[in-house]
Simulated assay, not measured.
Amino acid sequence: MTNAVLDVIAPGLQTLVQDYPGRQGLQSKGFFPAGPMDHLSFRVANSLVGNDAGAAALEVPMGRLTLRVLAETWVAVTGAESSGLTLNDVPMPMWETVRVVPGDEIKCAIVKGPGFRLYLAVAGGIDVPLVLGSRATYTMGGIGGVEGRALAKGDVLHAFPARAPRQLRVPASLRPVLANDWEIEVMRGPHADPDFLTEQDWKDLLGREWKVDLNANRVGTRLQAHRFQWARASGGVAGGHPSNVLDGSYPVGGINTNGDVPVILGPDGPTAGGFTVIGTVVQAGLWKIGQLRPGRDTIRFREISMDEALSLVTHVCYTIDPQHYEEM
């Protein structure tokens, strides 16, 4: 039996119920996994309220969310800075466990950043139906979460039963470092030099500062256009432009190049297509994509080895482990 815990007074821009890691293993059937854009902040929020790190919680881009508490519970908010987060009009701390009672009101204004998305976890995890093994909202397919859509005014969120969690705070040294100018870790390919890009093209990818376009969302983070030289004159049977390839599957975090426009594929992106993927953001670096502010932030890519990519995963696992948090 679940409890009604939160009443949506103002839903924000596109507040979604997500879980982690979403719907894995369904890409051949046309489903990218969905799940949180910033999986690190998401999992930390769950750890703070005693949940499994992947339990269903809220993703709040840009803020403007107001929730009324319907039952005593514990919440935690992580992610972007300078959101004007309040509890009953008093500043509410982030990155720690907070007890709330019926009648309390949680609000956030427009996120000023650094960062772009907030994550709000509730003790027990949000109860929405499992769809293909996950509670995550997949915006491209309109499934999961609350009826496959963003929250709307009047929605009531239920949570699974939970015991009172330990009162914890994430030490400042463990909190993700947010920025306006980001360094993001990548590995080459699957369509890189020398067959698709020139050596100079790859150097350009790493050496340039890329501005995040206003048209960036959960499907893909669009970057400013850039004319690569390309190592071939055309895509051959796949098409006239050298960025064309015969249709193949896309990885989450792939830097998809449609002509001269690089797009970092997000968790709601297309599963396959006919354009090159010249590099791929490593799994442990994907959380940064979720905190990029469209139209403002910039990126520099840094190529890393498989060993370094694996070491970054170890660091993420350390960060989401509540035994490393401070007792309050």
Rank of each mutant, 00 (worst) to 15 (best):
V8F: 09
A10N: 13
P11Q: 08
P11C: 06
G12I: 05
G12V: 06
Q14N: 12
Q14H: 14
V17D: 05
D19Q: 14
G22T: 13
Q24E: 15
Q27E: 15
Q27P: 15
S28N: 15
G30H: 15
P36W: 08
L40M: 00
S41L: 00
A45K: 10
A45P: 12
N46A: 10
L48W: 13
V49K: 01
D52S: 09
D52H: 11
G54W: 08
A55H: 10
A55M: 09
A56N: 11
L58C: 07
T66A: 13
R68P: 04
A71L: 02
E72T: 11
T73M: 03
V75K: 00
V77P: 06
E81W: 00
N88A: 05
V90Y: 01
T97M: 13
P102C: 11
G103F: 09
I110T: 08
F116G: 01
R117A: 00
L120T: 02
P129G: 12
P129W: 12
L130W: 12
L130K: 13
G133A: 12
R135W: 12
T137R: 04
Y138C: 15
Y138P: 10
T139S: 11
G144M: 14
G145S: 09
G148R: 08
R149G: 06
K153N: 08
D155E: 14
A164C: 10
P165C: 10
V170F: 05
P171D: 10
R175S: 09
P176A: 01
V177S: 00
V177D: 00
A179R: 02
E183M: 00
E183H: 00
A192M: 03
F196C: 08
L197A: 06
Q200A: 15
W202M: 14
W202V: 13
W202S: 07
K203I: 12
D204C: 10
L205P: 06
L206Q: 07
W210I: 04
A216D: 11
L223I: 02
A225F: 01
A225M: 04
P242V: 11
N244I: 05
V245A: 05
S249A: 14
T257C: 13
N258M: 09
G269W: 13
G273H: 05
I278W: 10
I278T: 13
Q291P: 04
T298S: 03
I299G: 00
R300T: 06
R300V: 05
F301E: 02
I304K: 02
A309D: 03
L310A: 13
T314R: 11
D321T: 01
P322F: 09
P322Q: 08
Q323K: 15
Q323H: 15
M328W: 15
